[in-house]
Simulated assay, not measured.
Amino acid sequence: MSPALSDARRYDIDALRAIAFGLLILYHVGMFYVPWDWHVQSAYPASWLEPVMTFFNQWRMPLIFLISGLAVRFMRRGRSASMLARQRLLRLGLPLLFGMLVVVPPQAYVEALRNQAFEGGYLAFLGRYLQLQPWPAGSFAGAELGVTWNHLWYLPYVLFYTLVVIPLAPLLDRMSRRFVQLRGTALVLLPLLPLLAAGLWVYPQFPYISHSLIDDGYAHAMFGCCFLYGYLIGRDPALWAHVASLRWWLLGLGVLSFAMRSLFAAWLDTEASGPEGLAWLFSVYLNRWTWMLVVLAWAHWRLNRPMRWLGWANESVYPWYVLHQSLTVVIGFYAGRALLGPVVEPMVVLGGTLLGCWLLTGVIRRSAWLRPLFGLKPRQNATSRLQPEAVTGS
C-alpha cells in the first residue's frame, strides 16, 4: 500500500524537489549538445538527444511550478500572510539580485565572446555589465536591458505567483476542497480545460516564452496554472492515495499520450486552426498533465519515507540551482575551444558542472554570510528543514 499520508513531513515532495533540480541540471547540459538555439553550443551536436529532450521538455518546468505551488500550501501552516510574504521576498529576492550581479555575468560574458560582441577580459566585461546600461542587441540574452537573470527567471515568476496566491488563500482553500474530490478520468481530463484554453487563446497572442515576466502571457497562463494546481492538491490523504493507486494506469496513459503527441507532430499542421489544431493541442496538454500525474503517483508510492540523502539534498538543491548553468556554460565554452572531441568533452562539461556545484555548495553551506545569498536559512535554523521551500526551478 501507499505510505500513510498525514501532517507529518512529506518525504516524497522533498525527494521530488531534489530530483526535479537534478533533471534540470542534466537538461541544461543537454542544451549544450542538442541542435537547438542556446547561449553557447558544442561543436559536436548530438541529434539523438532531441527526442529525449523533447520528452522531458514537455513537463519538466510545469512539474517544478506544480511542486512549488504545493510547497507554498505546506508553508502556509503556522505562518501569517504577511510573514509568508516577507519570507518569500527575502528568500527568493536576495538570491535573484545576487545571482544577476555575481553568478549570471560569466554566462553573459562567454555568450558575448561567442557572438563577437565583446573582445576584452572578464573584469572589463563585468565593469561594463555592472553599469546596468543596455548593450547592443544580440550581445547576449537580455542585453537590451543591460542586465539578465538567464536561468534564474524562475525566481521572479514563483515569487510573483506566491504573492498573488497569499491574499487569495481563503478562496483557493475552498476551491481545493472540490479539486481534491476529482477521481479517475475526471482527474485527468478536467484540469486539461484551462491548459487547452491557454493554448487556444493565449498562446496565439504570446507565441514566444520570453522569461521577461512582463510580456510573457502564455508562460504565466501555463506555469501559473500548474502552480495553482499544486496549491489545490495540497495534503489531502485520499487524493494522494488515489493518485498512487493509479500509477500503472497513468504510466500507460503517459506512454500513449507521448506517442500520440509525437505522431500528431509528424502528421498534423501544428499551426492549423479548427479540429486539426484542437487535436494537436489536446495531445500536447494531455501528455503534459499525465506525466505530471505519473511523477506524483510514483514518487508518493516509492519515496514517501525517510532517506539518508534527503537532508543533504534539501539544503543543497537551491545553491545547485543558482550555480549550475553558469558552470555549464563557462565550462562548455572553454572545453569547446580545447577541441576535446565528442566523448571527452561531454564528460568534462557534465563532470565539471557536478563537481563545481558540489564544491561551491560545500563552501556556501558553511558560510554564514553566503547562506542567505543562496536562499538558505541561517545556520542555527538549518537543521529544522521542515517542508520543502517554494523554490524549485529552471
Score class of each variant (00 low, 15 high):
L130G: 04
H151C: 03
I64H: 04
Y157R: 01
P62K: 07
F140G: 03
A108K: 02
L70K: 02
P105I: 12
V180R: 03
L159Y: 05
R174G: 02
I166Y: 05
L145S: 12
Y154F: 14
Q131Y: 08
L172E: 03
L171V: 15
R77M: 01
I166K: 06
L66G: 07
F118P: 05
P62N: 11
Q133P: 00
L152G: 13
A85I: 09
L155G: 00
P170Q: 10
L63Y: 11
L126W: 11
A137N: 06
L63N: 02
A124E: 13
G142V: 13
M75F: 02
Q87F: 11
G93F: 05
F74Q: 13
A124V: 11
G78P: 02
R76H: 10
R114I: 00
M61R: 09
G142T: 05
F118Y: 14
V158Y: 01
P106C: 06
R174M: 00
M61G: 13
R178W: 15
E119L: 12
E119Y: 05
L89N: 07
P156L: 02
Y154I: 04
R86V: 07
G93C: 09
W153K: 02
A141L: 14
W135R: 01
E119K: 12
F74P: 02
S176F: 03
V147E: 00
F125V: 08
A117F: 03
D173W: 00
L92C: 09
R177K: 05
Q131I: 04
Y154H: 13
S139C: 06
E111W: 00
L92E: 08
R60N: 06
L89Q: 10
T148L: 00
Q107Y: 02
A141M: 13
P105L: 10
R73P: 03
F179R: 05
L123C: 05
V165E: 04
W149Q: 06
R177L: 13
E119Q: 13
W149F: 08
Y129S: 07
L123R: 14
R79E: 03
S82F: 12
V104S: 09
L171T: 13
M175C: 15
M100L: 10
R91T: 15
F179P: 00
A137S: 15
